[in-house]
Amino acid sequence: EPLWIRPDAPSRCTWQLGRPASESPHHHTAPAKSPKILPDILKKIGDTPMVRINKIGKKFGLKCELLAKCEFFNAGGSVKDRISLRMIEDAERDGTLKPGDTIIEPTSGNTGIGLALAAAVRGYRCIIVMPEKMSSEKVDVLRALGAEIVRTPTNARFDSPESHVGVAWRLKNEIPNSHILDQYRNASNPLAHYDTTADEILQQCDGKLDMLVASVGTGGTITGIARKLKEKCPGCRIIGVDPEGSILAEPEELNQTEQTTYEVEGIGYDFIPTVLDRTVVDKWFKSNDEEAFTFARMLIAQEGLLCGGSAGSTVAVAVKAAQELQEGQRCVVILPDSVRNYMTKFLSDRWMLQKGFLKEEDLTEKKPWWWHLRVQELGLSAPLTVLPTITCGHTIEILREKGFDQAPVVDEAGVILGMVTLGNMLSSLLAGKVQPSDQVGKVIYKQFKQIRLTDTLGRLSHILEMDHFALVVHEQIQYHSTGKSSQRQMVFGVVTAIDLLNFVAAQERDQK
C-alpha cells in the first residue's frame, strides 16, 4: 500500500453525458421521505430548503428570480454533511469501515464536522487534520463531537509532509485500522450531490432553472449537481466560483495573481482535486475576500440567511453572472454553511477592521482624538531585521541585547519573508524542534498583521487588541530589464502597544 495517494490523481470516472444510468458502476440512493420521529440526527441530513432572495437581486438590477439552496440546514450545519454520511455509508457497505475503526480526514473543517457527527452516532474514533487558518468555532464544535484535532501550517503546499493532507496520511500509516475516506478522491463525494442535492433542486424548481452558481473546494458539490442538471435540464448554465489565490478556475489566465492566501474558508485549493470535473462548468468567476464577507453580511442583514463567507462569494458572483438572465428565468445559488463557524471572524466588526474589510468610518461609535491620525505620526525608528541564514542562537542574543521581542526576517534585497519572535524561538528550542545552530528560517511564521503608514491609529489599535505587534510595510514598484514591473513589500518598522501608548501619553502631556 502506498504511503500516500495524491489528492489530485487523474480521475478514473467514466461518467458521460447521455450515458444510461443503468451502466453506472456505483451504488445510487434515492431521496427517502422522513418519518415524523427521526431514529437519529443523521436522518436530518439532506432535504434542505430552497429560499427566495428578495432584496439583493433587485438591489443589483437582476431581472431573474434568485433562489438560495440553504445547505446550513443540514444536521452539522453545512453541505459537507451529505458527503460525510455518504462516504461512511459506502465504506461500511463495501466492508472497508468496521466497528471500532478510526476515521482520519484532512479538511478545512466542515467535512470534519460532518464526519465527527456521523462518527459520534456510529461509534468510530475520528481524527481531523486541518490548517491553522480555520476558525476556532470549527475546532470547538469538533472537540465537542469527540474528534481529535491536529493543526497544520496554512501556507504548507498540499504535497508537503507538513500539509493537512501529508499529516493525515502519516497518521494513517501509524494508526492500525485507520482510514482516510479522502473527500478529494472519493466518488461518494460527487455521488452524494448527484443522487440527492441535484434531485432536490430539480424537484423544488419543478425542473425549471436557467443558471446554477456554486463555490468550489473539493469540487464534489458542483460536479455532482452539474452532471445531473446537464442530464435533466441541459439549458442550465453552470457557474463556478473560485477565490483569488486558488488555481481551480479555467482558463488558467484567471488564476494569475501574486496573491497566495485568502481568508474565506472551505473553497479554493492549490491543486485540482480528483473529484472535480471542470468540463461540466460553463464559466468560472474569481471572487475576493472583501466581496465575500460584504455579501455574507448582506445576506444575514437583508435576507435573514445566517450563512458563512463562501455563501457571500457565491452570491457576489451570482449578481454578476445572472445579469444575462431575463424576467421569468431563474438562478439558484448554493449557500454551503452557517455563520456559526465564523462568529469571531467576519461577523465581528473588530475582525473586519483588522483585516481591512471594514473602515473605521463605517462604525458610528465615538472615537478618541488620536483615532484618525496616521501611523506615520508615530515617528517610528528604523527596524531591526535579520536574514533567514542567521542562526536561532545568534538571533536570540541580538533580540535580548537590543531589547526586542520580535524581528522581521528579510532577504538580501529587503523583501519581507516573515517574522521571528523570542517566545516562538525559545519554545521551539525547548520542544526540540530546532537547535541553536539551525537557521532562523526554520522558525519563520507568517501569521502576523501588516499595516501601512497611511493607515489610521484606530486601525492599529484594533490590531493591537488581539496581537502583540504589527509590521509596518510599504510597497515598492521595481522595474526589470524586460520592461515588466513587480510590486514588493518592504519593512518600514515594527509597532507595539507600548509605542502607541507612549505616543498618546506624550501628545497629551505636551497639550497640557
Rank of each mutant, 00 (worst) to 15 (best):
V317M: 14
T389K: 12
F271Y: 06
D277M: 00
A505Y: 06
I416S: 15
V315D: 02
P273E: 07
T364P: 10
H394E: 10
M352P: 02
D270K: 05
V410I: 14
I239Q: 03
H372M: 04
A296G: 13
L457R: 02
E258F: 15
L378S: 07
M298T: 13
Q302G: 06
E361R: 12
M298W: 12
K512I: 04
C392E: 09
V333A: 13
S461Y: 05
L457T: 05
T279D: 02
T456D: 15
E244M: 03
G245H: 00
A382I: 11
K449Q: 12
G328D: 14
I238M: 08
Q450L: 15
A316M: 02
Q450I: 14
T421I: 14
C307K: 00
R400Y: 12
W370D: 05
A407R: 01
M343S: 04
T395V: 11
A322V: 02
V241A: 03
L276M: 11
E324T: 10
E397S: 04
E397R: 12
L335W: 00
G308R: 00
K286Q: 07
G423A: 07
V495S: 14
I267G: 03
L325M: 08
I300D: 02
I396Y: 11
Q489P: 12
A497R: 11
F404D: 01
N502V: 10
L373K: 07
G458S: 15
L471F: 12
V473A: 12
Q256L: 14
G309I: 03
R488A: 13
G432D: 08
L325V: 10
V494C: 09
I238A: 01
R340F: 01
M419Y: 13
P273N: 07
I451L: 13
L422M: 11
S437G: 13
I247G: 08
G379D: 14
K402L: 15
A249M: 04
F293M: 04
N341C: 00
R400G: 10
C331V: 01
G309E: 05
F404N: 01
E508L: 13
F271E: 01
V241P: 03
V332C: 14
E258I: 14
V317W: 06
L347K: 04
T496D: 05
Q323Y: 11
G312L: 03
D467H: 09
S428A: 14
V420H: 00
A311P: 05
